[in-house]
Structures are given as C-alpha cells and as structure tokens.
C-alpha cells in the first residue's frame, strides 16, 4: 500500500504541523457494530431475545398445558416442533424456558459482579483488616470448585430455581472481588490518580472518575465472556434436577427430561441444545469484541 497526496511546497511547513492523525470518536455500540465478529454475535443475540420475549406473545400454545393423547408428536402443522413426553408444545416451552435460562444467567451475573465490585473496591481502597478478611474469604471460596459449592448450597437450601440462583451467586462472587481489588490496587498508584490527588481532588471523586470506569470496562468484558458458561451452569444444574421443577420449562431441564426419548423423538433434545449453543456463541463473540474495543490504548 502506498499513500500519495498532493504536495504543496508553500504549505509544507504548515502541513507538517497539522499532519497529526484525526480520529473520530465513535460510541462503543457503533464500534461494536463495525466489528464483524461482534455484529454476528449481536444479530444472534437480538434474534434469541426476540424469540424468548416476543415469541410467547404471538405463539398461541400454552407451554404448561399437557395433552396426554398427543404425546411425543413429531414436528408438524399443529405443533411446529412437536410435543414432549407430556404432550406439551415444544416450541412454546423453548420460548418460556429461554426466558428463564437467559434471564437468570443475566440476573446471577449482574448480582455477582456488583457484589464483587463493591467488596473488591472497599478492600482495595481501605486496605487494613477489611482487606485481609475479605481476601482470606475469597481464597477460601476460590479454593472450592464452583460447581461442587453450588450443589452443596442447593443441598442445604433445598432444590428450587431461586435457591439455585442464590447458590450460584454465593459460589462465584469471589473471582469478581479479587479482580476488582487487584485493578484498584494498581489504579490508586497510577500517575493520573496521583496528579489528581495533588491537585486537590478527593478520593471519592477520583474513584468515580478515574478508577471505576476502568474497573467497569474490565468487568463488562469478563461478564460477557462468562455469560456463556453461566447459561451452561444453570442448564447443567437444572439437568441434574437441582433447579427448575416441573411443569416449569428451562433449557437445561428440558434436555434432562427428553434424554430418555432420544432414540424416537430426537427433536426434543436438539431444540434446547442448539439454543444453548447459540446463546453461548453469541455471548462469547460479543465479549471477545468488547475486549478489543474497550482497551483504551488501542486506536480505532
């Protein structure tokens, strides 16, 4: 590639002075859209959201109504994706279950990351006994495998969807607290922070203007990358029977329920499996792109 541009001798000096790159500052969403991977992820995500939010409104079947005379019906004109082992409409159940799977994954990640953020921020800024205590607790939590921990907590609380979410929050906040704290520890030594402090800006404002924006962008990236695995976790625990109880639908529970009929009704397994797969892909594509875009050192 070679660039040529008209050369005007008289303006040469002035031209050199102004030959600095002019960069347009686009919003993050616009830059995300220009990122081809992210665009695929976003289209996929929007389609999935439409499926679980608008779908139940326009699709006439009741996901919880059994029809024992019409069990395990293959896909056809009356039931587009057929019916399950109790004669319930599979498509309607996928829509309702998707709402529960995706919504709860977002809910868990939201509460986990805000809890981790608050604990990590206080620990990193205060130091002292709170820091020591919080970090030893984090060590303990991180030493235990998350899945085992979640199963144990559900075991104590009893099976149920709400209990499952509580268990997931308890078993995964530690990672976010540790991440936030380590970021805060480096950020408070940063030269722009020292300059602001010497100029007379208080810690409170320094945290909100210099430190938090950096932590948040890191957390957003981690949360999107973890969204996929969180969907898989919730589905997995529901598959084990620790989450959603029938007749409520959830993708993981649907997989679990349909596995006995795999040989003669494989569509029951394929539906939730493909949807889980697509959600994980979509979240990972967006997360990867966010990591590239939110890096402040990278020029567009």
């Amino acid at each position: 590639m070679s660039f040529t541009r008209p050369f005007n001798p008289l303006d040469a000096a002035a031209e050199i002075e102004t030959a600095l790159p002019v960069v347009k500052h686009r919003k993050v969403t616009a830059r995300l859209w220009r990122h081809s991977q992210a665009r695929i992820g976003m289209i996929l995500g929007i389609l999935l959201l439409c499926f679980v939010i608008i779908g139940p409104i326009i699709y006439p079947h009741d996901p919880a109504k059994p029809d024992y005379g019409n069990k395990l019906a293959p896909p056809g004109s009356q039931h587009i994706l057929g019916t399950d082992q109790s004669g319930r409409d599979q498509l309607a159940r996928l829509m309702e279950g998707g709402m529960r799977s995706l919504g709860s994954a977002l809910l868990v990640l939201g509460s986990v990351s805000s809890a981790g953020l608050v604990i990590g921020l206080i620990a990193g800024m205060s130091g002292g006994w709170f820091d020591a205590l919080a970090m030893r607790l984090v060590d303990v939590m991180m030493a235990l495998p998350g899945m085992v921990m979640a199963i144990a907590v559900v075991g104590v609380l009893g099976p149920g969807f709400i209990n499952l979410l509580v268990a997931l929050v308890i078993s995964s906040w530690a990672y976010y607290a540790r991440l936030t704290r380590s970021y805060v520890l480096t950020a408070r030594q940063r030269q722009d922070v020292i300059s602001a402090r010497l100029a007379g800006i208080g810690w409170g404002r320094v945290i909100f203007t210099h430190i938090l924006p950096g932590v948040l962008t890191q957390l957003i990236v981690i949360v999107t990358l973890n969204l996929g695995s969180m969907i898989a976790w919730i589905s997995g625990l529901s598959f084990l029977g620790l989450g959603v109880q029938p007749p409520k639908a959830e993708w993981g529970a649907m997989l679990s329920g349909s596995r006995f009929y795999f040989t003669f009704a494989p569509w029951l397994l394929l539906g939730p499996a493909i949807l889980i797969f697509l959600s994980v892909i979509s979240a990972n594509l967006i997360g990867n792109a966010l990591r590239d875009i939110l890096d402040p050192k990278a020029n567009e």
């Binding site: 070679s2 660039f3 040529t4 050369f7 050199i16 030959a19």
Partner: peptide, 9 residues
C-alpha cells in the same frame, strides 16, 4: 515541527 509521516511520499 515534527518528523514527516512516513506513510506518504
């Protein structure tokens, strides 16, 4: 001034 941008002739 500054050195020239070496992408250009």
């Amino acid at each position: 001034g500054y050195p020239p941008d070496l992408r250009y002739q």
